[in-house]
Simulated scan of single mutants.
Amino acid sequence: MSTFARPFRVHLRHGQAYEGAQFPSGLVVVLEDPEYGLVVSAADVDALLRGYGGGHLEWPDPSTSTEP
């Protein structure tokens, strides 16, 4: 696994979408409200989706990555 955080977008069942990142340890964080800095974290992707009651993740295309 990369030594950098991997960005993703989580799409919830009710249509809302949030930006997030997965760290090398598996920990994930999602920014729910950028104005107030409200974030959600979970031990891994499965726990995150369980906590949200479902949804799916959209990972960026690796060919467009700006990672060194």
Rank of each mutant, 00 (worst) to 15 (best):
G20V: 04
L38S: 11
A47T: 13
D33G: 01
V40E: 02
S2I: 02
R6N: 09
P34L: 02
V30D: 05
D46Q: 13
P68S: 12
E67R: 14
L57I: 01
V10A: 06
E35T: 11
G20Q: 03
P68I: 08
T64K: 12
E19H: 12
R50N: 07
Y18V: 03
L57Q: 05
V40R: 11
A43Y: 04
G55S: 08
A17N: 08
V30C: 02
G15Y: 13
V10H: 07
V39G: 00
L12N: 06
A5L: 07
D46Y: 08
E58I: 03
L38E: 14
H11F: 08
R50V: 02
L27I: 02
E58Q: 12
G15R: 11
T66S: 05
G54R: 06
V39T: 15
P24Q: 03
A21L: 04
G54Y: 06
Q16W: 00
A17Y: 08
G51M: 07
A17I: 04
G55I: 07
E58P: 00
Q16M: 10
G51H: 08
P62E: 11
F23Y: 15
E19W: 07
D46P: 00
A5V: 06
L38M: 07
S63R: 12
G15I: 10
D44A: 02
W59I: 04
A17T: 14
L31W: 14
A17F: 04
V39I: 13
S25A: 09
P62L: 11
V39M: 15
L49C: 07
Y52A: 10
F23V: 03
V28E: 10
Q22T: 03
Y36W: 14
R9F: 00
V29R: 15
L48E: 08
P24G: 01
A21T: 06
D33E: 14
R13I: 08
R6G: 00
P34S: 07
G51P: 03
D33T: 05
R9T: 15
Y36E: 12
G37Q: 09
G37T: 10
V10W: 05
E35C: 00
T66G: 01
G51V: 05
S63N: 08
L48T: 12
V28K: 03
E67G: 00
S25W: 03
P24M: 01
S63L: 11
D61N: 15
Y52H: 12
A5P: 09
A42R: 02
S65N: 06
L27T: 10
W59F: 13
P62N: 12
T64V: 10
F23I: 03
G37E: 13
E32T: 15
V40I: 06
T64S: 10
G37V: 06
L57M: 07
T64E: 13
S25G: 01
D61A: 13
L49R: 07
L31K: 12
A21M: 09
R6H: 14
H56I: 00
T66N: 07
S25I: 01
S25D: 15
T64R: 13
D33A: 08
T3N: 12
G26A: 05
